[in-house]
Computed example of a mutant assay.
Amino acid sequence: MARTEPLRLHDLEPSTEEFRQAVIDGLSGQPKTLPCKFFYDAEGSRLFDAICELPEYYPTRTELGILSRNAPAMAAAIGPDARIVEFGSGAGVKIRLLLAALERPAAYVPVDICREHMMAAADGLAADFPDLRIAPVCADYTRPFALPSIPGADTGVTVGFFPGSTIGNFSPAEATAFLARARRLLGRGSMMLVGADVPKDAGVLEAAYDDAAGVTAAFNRNLLVRMQRELGAELDIELFRHEARWCPRNRRVEMHLVSLSRQEIRLGDRVFAFDRGESIHTENSYKYSVPEFRALAGRSGWLPAQTWTDAAGLFAVHLLRSG
């Protein structure tokens, strides 16, 4: 059956003023920081899709392999008529594997901060799954938002889908708070599928976040490009170098923009001074063993139900049930 109506967007995209305030707050602190959620404008989303194809970046292909092999078992655990809510939907590659395996999925709600990228992916899914109700939400999913009402899509379980190890971008306390908030949003009897990266050799981790082709460096520096274009910030992008660091004590990879000289960033009447070697901390990616992640999920009110991993134990996909 062909789809006859255009997709209706629920638009809660962060404003330019929110971006400006986040930059001011982040660069005013010590150490200086910028929120990684602002990576994802149209260009940042394109660059991230390119990162996922890189030979060094094992998480995407490893998780895709886990989903390809285990989607039938995941679908059996979820049951028929499910409503799927994907946090940070991106290009919509992984959700296709789950939707194809599910029995009569009732609805799909992609939630993403980048409107353009999300709508392109949603349109493609609408063409390939013409009977599926799709209700895109442009929003910052790290903040509270409401799910759209979808008539006829409330007979099965509601399932959160959070692949890609994006949960690792939160600190453990933030991850616990996010999962607790997601549990309340999804409601009683809900489930959640979460991808989580596993600790491994430092060389493998650092290469994954600092590839030889420089795509991750461009992705990181795109934050500075956005500041220039959208906020009118005065800065020299060439004086910042991308750096990825594995911090074993915190079990996380950190991404930084390191200043190559003494310099300033000007934003309106605000001036932010940098020493040579000083950095802007832009992203963390925490790594969790299977027991560690199950314990974290438990602290947020979820009950660990099942875990699927690859043969080498590089990555894990966890199925959680609301407690």
Rank of each mutant, 00 (worst) to 15 (best):
E18F: 00
L34S: 08
L320W: 02
L319G: 07
D81Q: 15
D128Q: 05
D123A: 10
L132M: 11
L185A: 04
F178Y: 02
L235F: 12
R115Y: 03
R226F: 13
C52D: 12
A122R: 14
L185T: 02
I95H: 01
F48I: 04
T176M: 03
A100W: 06
P136Y: 01
V198G: 01
S171W: 07
G168I: 02
C114Q: 05
F293Q: 07
F39G: 03
H256V: 15
V204L: 13
D11M: 09
S45V: 13
R96V: 06
L235I: 09
L12G: 06
Y209N: 00
D140K: 05
L239M: 15
A173H: 08
N250V: 15
G203N: 00
E116W: 13
V85N: 00
S190E: 02
R8G: 04
F87Y: 15
V253K: 04
P144A: 00
R104C: 04
G44V: 10
R252V: 14
D269E: 10
K37W: 03
A218N: 10
L12H: 06
V157N: 01
R276A: 13
A139I: 00
H256L: 14
S165C: 00
S89M: 15
L185N: 03
Q306D: 11
A153V: 03
V253H: 09
A177G: 07
F39V: 05
G323W: 06
D123E: 14
L102Y: 04
V317R: 07
L27N: 02
L179M: 10
R321T: 09
G88N: 05
I113L: 09
I84L: 06
E103I: 15
M1T: 06
T4E: 03
D197E: 03
F274E: 03
C52Y: 08
P35S: 14
L7F: 05
A122Q: 09
S259I: 11
A217M: 08
R8V: 12
R270G: 10
A180T: 02
I134W: 00
K32A: 11
Y141K: 07
S259M: 15
A297E: 02
P55T: 06
R69M: 06
A50Y: 02
G65V: 14
H10N: 08
A196S: 04
T282E: 13
N220E: 07
K287H: 11
Y58W: 09
E116C: 11
V253L: 14
P6K: 06
E278C: 06
T16M: 08
